[in-house]
Computed example of a mutant assay.
Amino acid sequence: MWADPSTFKLVSNTALVDQFGGFDRLLLWQRIGGFIVTGLPAVIFAWALICLLPLIRMAERGDWFNAASERYCFRAGKLLLWHALVRWLSDTALVLVLTATNPPGERALMVNVGSDDLLSLIPALMALCIAHMMRIGRAQRDELNEII
């Protein structure tokens, strides 16, 4: 979208870009910055999903309650928290990038909190809860193994 806005209208927040002057007035570094700002939440989310792949393989083998599975789930939860934070700040950062070349007094700052920002916390908190349950399950298994 940042290379040719007419072909990728659904990739990012074109309404926000149009509100602050459109693509035509942007410098190259602003286009690169806009691309990074809008793409960063997707990259973090993809990284979190990649961290879940080893956990899925462990679950397929029935190997749930070990330190590695707990670590993978906790790492994915932390990345999902970062995703929620970066996603929440992405519009603010995008506005800062779009108005950086404006003269003083015409630059803008926008802070926006919506229900979708709050809902993006749910998968992160679920992953952290599952990691905690794995820790408790592993401790109970270890305790039972000591008794037997």
Score class of each variant (00 low, 15 high):
I36M: 09
F35R: 01
M58R: 15
I36D: 00
S12H: 02
C73Y: 09
L80G: 03
G105L: 03
R57P: 03
R75V: 09
D117I: 02
V17L: 01
T14Y: 11
D63M: 04
L125I: 11
K78V: 15
A131F: 10
M58F: 12
L89N: 03
L121N: 08
G33I: 00
S90N: 06
E70I: 05
V111A: 13
A3M: 07
L26G: 00
W47H: 11
L125G: 07
F23H: 04
I32W: 07
W82K: 02
L40W: 04
A131L: 11
I32T: 02
C51P: 04
L10D: 10
F74C: 12
R141V: 11
G114C: 05
R31K: 07
A42I: 07
M126I: 10
S12G: 05
N112Y: 12
R31Y: 00
N13G: 04
M133Q: 13
L128G: 05
V86P: 03
N112V: 07
K9T: 06
P123N: 01
C73M: 15
A67E: 12
L80R: 04
A76H: 01
R57N: 12
L28S: 08
D4T: 06
L119T: 12
D117N: 15
D4S: 06
E70L: 05
R57F: 06
V86F: 14
R141D: 06
A42D: 13
H83S: 02
P123F: 12
L53Y: 02
D116C: 02
E70C: 10
M134K: 06
M126D: 10
W82D: 05
A15M: 13
L89R: 15
M58L: 14
C73A: 14
L28T: 06
Q19E: 12
E60H: 14
R135H: 07
M133V: 10
I130W: 13
A48E: 07
A67P: 00
K9R: 09
E143P: 04
I32Y: 03
L49W: 10
I36G: 01
L53E: 01
M133R: 13
L85F: 10
L119F: 14
L121K: 13
L52A: 06
L89K: 13
M110R: 13
V95F: 12
K78W: 15
I36V: 07
W2T: 04
L119N: 12
L80Y: 10
T99K: 02
